[in-house]
Design a protein around this nucleic acid. Structure first.
Ligand SMILES: [Zn+2]
Ligand SMILES: [Zn+2]
Ligand SMILES: [Zn+2]
Ligand SMILES: [Zn+2]
Lengths: 148, 148
DNA sequence: ACACGAGTGAGAATGGTTTTCAAAAGCAGG
DNA sequence: CCTGCTTTTGAAAACCATTCTCACTCGTGT
């Protein structure tokens, strides 16, 4: 993510930078909805969460807001096996990965310096530059393993 | 992938197992098209490849065939950032990952025992069972780095 | 209060993928 | 070769998540 991206969202309300995002009822609703859940949710689910909470925000706006947040690195995005995008606000904004329960969706945030190094080494080996990577782990969490 | 899955596709033409896939002109066309390219291609691109080769196969059939091949583990599938599914027939059918050039799509098949072990260890650490993972590397290949 | 660019939402448009279903093609067995 | 039965195919329609349109509303600095 770029610094400009980050500034677009975290800019203080006092800075009149052109292109800064305005704090609106809708954007607050999306952010709060994200705060009430621990696992990855689709845009539509977020939309439903907000509706169930009494507020009304257009679906298009939910999509737009999530895109902006993802752009800013505030939320993580990944794709379900069916190709649907799901979002989650993680505790850290640092680079990390996830261990997701296939059954209940419970999610752990993972940091793995070993893998980061490995990725870089592989890139070097093949002569590739600007290596980035995408990595997610899946499994059955202890809770779900207990009740088969 | 399950053994039943594999049998559905690789079954010898002599075995009259119920549910076995029949060898047809269309399926051959898809398989051959996959053989003529080295990088990941979308279903529509495969469809175009076949058309450009003179043959005519319905788009729906291309989708169905690719799904079957993926199911059987014969082709690898991944999703572009836009959510489109892209397919590739890799040299090995063993578990592996990919290093893909962001510019030209050139693809290297990667095997990383270190990562496999790391993934298992992480799973154990968090008490998760049946750990699986998804991992792709992206970068700029030497050829593309040469001509910016 | 005013002006104006940013933000919103209902609905239409997109675009990849799946489903439908009737016609065509494999595969014995006779 | 016929015959009956199952699988496969494909054109078009249905699906569905996501994006776009555009008239209207809101937030902000003056
Ligand atoms: Zn779980
Ligand atoms: Zn990483
Ligand atoms: Zn390249
Ligand atoms: Zn692996």
């Amino acid at each position: 993510m770029t610094n400009t991206d980050r500034d677009r969202v975290s800019a203080a309300p006092s800075s009149p930078e052109p292109g800064a995002l305005r704090p609106t009822r809708q954007r607050t609703a999306v952010t709060e909805a994200l705060g009430t859940v621990a696992d990855f949710r689709s845009a539509q689910e977020i939309h439903d969460l907000i509706a169930g909470h009494g507020e009304k925000v257009g679906l298009a706006t939910v999509y737009r807001t999530l895109a902006a947040l993802a752009d800013a690195g505030v939320v993580d995005v990944l794709r379900t096996e069916e190709g649907e995008a799901v979002y989650r606000r993680c505790a850290t904004t640092r680079h990390h990965h996830h261990l997701v329960c296939r059954t209940c969706g419970a999610t752990e945030e993972i940091e793995g310096p070993a893998v980061e190094d490995w990725a870089g080494a592989i890139g070097r080996t093949f002569g590739y530059a600007d290596i980035s990577h995408e990595l997610e782990l899946f499994g059955t969490c202890p809770k779900c393993a207990g009740a088969p």
